[in-house]
Design a binder for these strands. Structure first.
Lengths: 189, 189, 189, 189
DNA sequence: AATGAATGAGGGTTCATTCAT
DNA sequence: TATGAATGAACCCTCATTCAT
């Protein structure tokens, strides 16, 4: 039965709406409790649309996670210039972290993805893409190994802020980042 | 005569068995997909035992998370002496991380807890207890703020290792930890 | 949730009720359109009872088919004496066919089983048990090969009656059966 | 220039292709589990074609069953001459049965149709047409009543072969057919 | 004339939870 | 005290059918 009024056709937009809805739902209830129904409701689309555009729930969830990852990449690219010109990388990174934490959902989904990827190899490329994005942003400044440590510190600090629902200790974080940058080897270009 | 195989029916033991089973199940499928049935099966106990000892599924899961946290604290206490005497805190911490990563399940559940706590305030005390444990171990050596950064770096690095299914870069991590320790203020008692 | 009034416990009876309901549903809509919900409604039991007692729909259906087969065997056993003493096997067989056709559902399910078994090897033993029951009833009188032909003729004639919704041509059938009996080899005990 | 691969769009051909696809699908999964999608995929036609050429699923299925019946009739006509000239009708019929069983799908669909017709009066004419075809082939030789018994025996024997996945006992079948022929009345024109 | 996008009913199955025993 | 029987909501997914294009 295909009664009730149909919405105009715009597959691109519907896929996007579903992916965006997935992100929101995951942020709210977690991957493990994300359902077709919740996503459809959130997207304002009929239930059937979820399986029509994404054969399985896993596909649907993956689409959301992929979208979130691409959103991050786009955001990082937008910020790339600022990082290139900064004379205080540590402060810039702290600002970045503070900015991300402003949108708890955005941050929450990052860790959802990480934890899920730790269990499900199929999600690993996505999580790695996420990590790589951050690392590559910093690599030109501090080399790969240090970049990785900076990202680790940032991710750890953000996770703690999220967990404890406490604001980041920006001063401490900046100092710590600076220490890593100063001490880091510069073996790479 | 064989007085039959009389099971002990030790409530304490059964609760513990259930909590331990919860930990295993969460590590395998995540909090969101943990069920009474899976826990009961894992514990080798009847389904009814789960709801008999823990009113709701959330309670059952919380019991598992609590147990996992207590296990960690006990482990940390056991290691405390080593930390007190070490002359190379950074190396000791890296060893600690490597040791934890040996048991992926153990590590996985830590991040499960963190991500869940980020969403559910009821779990926050548990996650904070976990964080506090690590921090307090290091505080006497480096002060609270630095301790926090060390823990953040450790958690971030371990998370990345888990996500990418890659071994920790122990050398880089140790250097980074050392940098944080050296640079850290010692403003606190 | 397990609200609403519970019926008394009698697993045996419930399994039987479900199996009986399956038989009715299959007779009405066919195996391919038999659903949990239809069976539960027919049995006057809640939906959950179907999967509680039979893990999958296939199991549920198999239980119905098995029950139908056992019903037939019991019926055949009841009639065995009459066959042993008859001096007119052909007439007795025609009566048997007429009797079975009285309950279209009973007959319908036989052919449902046969057609399903032709496709699904898992059902084959059941269908063969059905065939064997008839064959063994006749074997003492006419030998195995002739028994088989008698059963084939009966099954074919009943199928035609069912298909055309026409009464059996009892006279013709009796004559035909008699011809087979008379012409049959008596090579077996 | 390549005027593209312009498909013929021959409605007649498409209907035929769909009907043929229906036959295959029914043989594989049964009428009750035959779907638009499976048929379209099998025919290599778009989903919309199924409902475009046949209003409902039942119509589509009926088209397949009708086609199968017509195929049989055509086949019987082709064989009619052989039957007219044979001096050993029983042997010829056994050969016929063996031939049909060679293509299990062909045979399977016959019984699918029979069982469905037993339940659904709308299909009855089709099934009767099938039966009539066989009967009329034999009627000139043995009269109508005997012809019917021959067809019943054949159908029963083929069904058993199908069900048990066993080869027909050709010798026994031929003997049985012969017995029916010899004993049969010749009361009709 | 033809198609695939679109929808929601319905199907198989799982499961938290309740409760008789 | 302890258990497994019992229930129905909710889940994922399939699909007949409709309709815009």
């Amino acid at each position: 039965m295909a009664t009730s009024e149909r919405r105009p056709r715009d597959p691109q937009a519907r896929r996007a709406a579903l992916a965006a809805a997935v992100i929101e739902v995951i942020a709210e209830v977690g991957i493990g409790r994300t359902t077709h129904r919740a996503v459809a409701a959130r997207a304002g689309l009929p239930l059937g649309a979820t399986t029509y555009y994404f054969p399985t729930l896993d596909d649907l969830i993956a689409a959301g996670l992929r979208q979130a990852t691409e959103d991050l990449r786009a955001d990082l690219e937008r910020r790339a210039a600022a990082f290139r010109d900064t004379h205080d990388l540590a402060a810039a990174l702290t600002d970045l972290a503070l900015g991300y934490l402003d949108d708890r959902g955005q941050t929450q989904i990052e860790y959802e993805l990480f934890v899920a990827a730790a269990r499900d190899p199929a999600l690993r490329p996505l999580a790695e893409f996420w990590l790589t994005g951050m690392t590559e942003l910093l690599e030109p400044h501090v080399g790969r190994r240090t970049a990785r440590m900076l990202v680790a510190l940032l991710d750890g600090a953000m996770l703690h802020a999220l967990v404890t629902a406490t604001a980041l200790d920006a001063t401490a974080l900046t100092s710590a980042l600076r220490a890593l940058i100063l001490a880091g080897p510069r073996e790479e270009a």
